[in-house]
Simulated assay, not measured.
Amino acid sequence: MSTSASVRPYGGVNADQRASERRERLLDAGLDLLGSADDSVTLTVRGVCAQAGVVARYFYESFADSDALAVEVYERVITNLVDETLAALATSPEEEQERIRTGLSAIVAHLAADPRRGRLIFTTALSHPALAAKRLEMVRMFAGLLAAQAQSFYKTDPTARLDAVARFLVGGFGETLTAWQHGDLDVTQEELVDLCVALFASSAASVRD
């Protein structure tokens, strides 16, 4: 009897669909709070439930606590960023600077389209205990993806130099994006991409040689 009640449609939407919709609202509310431009905003169960319009008991059907929500929000943002960048690279011209431009343009455009994403990745994750380790994983992952792309493009083997260059570029690119998003770097989106393309292309010489 209780089983049938739990799956009974309400307003044409069954229980699983309602739970999924609540989960999506909580994730988006989590991104609102974690990616807020107001540094005083913190992520709490009460706060995210109020933002999402969901009562607390429904929060716990999807997440163990606020840290679990924060980690899932972060991982979702990173996954979407990687997927969009790799999709762009899959149709990129096979010319060095154009390929670099395609990848960097995709990243910058994705973050610029929703400033919450960049604030979460580059600012919030530095101070949020549950996300600090995730940010380190993210840097290693992007460095690995960059190194793999370079190996494939330049037909080179993995080396300590390639790994060092990839980490240097990913770290520098992240700092540059952070400065731009905070308004400390007074350039347009197009100028930012042009600058970073030139820096990445000049570093490519150390990989080719």
Rank of each mutant, 00 (worst) to 15 (best):
S6L: 05
V7K: 15
V7G: 14
Y10E: 14
A15P: 11
D16G: 10
R18C: 09
R18L: 14
A19Y: 02
S20M: 03
R22I: 02
R23T: 00
E24A: 15
E24Q: 13
D28W: 07
A29E: 06
A29W: 03
L31T: 00
D32F: 05
L33V: 11
L33F: 04
G35W: 07
A37D: 15
A37T: 12
D39M: 08
S40T: 12
T44Y: 13
T44K: 09
V45W: 08
V48D: 08
A50G: 06
A52V: 05
G53T: 12
G53P: 11
A56I: 01
R57K: 12
Y58T: 04
Y58F: 07
Y58P: 00
S62W: 03
F63K: 06
F63Y: 14
F63I: 12
F63P: 05
F63R: 10
A64E: 11
D65P: 04
D65E: 03
A70S: 12
A70R: 07
V73Q: 02
Y74C: 04
I78E: 15
L81Q: 03
V82S: 09
V82H: 13
V82M: 11
D83A: 07
L86F: 05
L89V: 02
T91N: 13
T91Q: 14
T91C: 09
S92R: 05
E94N: 10
E95M: 10
R99P: 00
I100Q: 01
R101K: 06
L104N: 01
S105I: 02
A106D: 05
I107Y: 09
A109K: 08
H110Q: 02
H110E: 06
A112S: 09
A112T: 05
A112V: 07
D114R: 02
P115Y: 06
R116W: 01
R117G: 10
G118V: 08
G118K: 06
R119A: 04
R119L: 04
R119E: 06
T123P: 00
T124F: 06
A125R: 02
H128M: 02
P129L: 15
A130P: 08
A130V: 10
A132S: 06
E137D: 13
E137C: 04
V139A: 12
V139H: 14
M141A: 08
G144Q: 03
L146E: 11
A147K: 04
A148W: 03
A150V: 08
A150W: 09
Q151V: 10
Y154H: 15
K155T: 10
T156V: 15
T156R: 14
D157E: 15
P158K: 03
T159N: 07
A160P: 09
A160K: 06
A160D: 15
L162E: 06
D163P: 01
A164N: 04
A164S: 11
A164H: 11
F168K: 14
V170H: 00
V170D: 02
G172A: 13
G172H: 09
G174M: 12
E175M: 10
E175A: 09
E175D: 10
T178Y: 03
D184A: 06
V187K: 15
V187C: 14
T188E: 14
T188W: 05
E190T: 04
E191L: 02
S202A: 12
S203H: 11
S203D: 09
A205D: 01
D209M: 02
D209C: 01
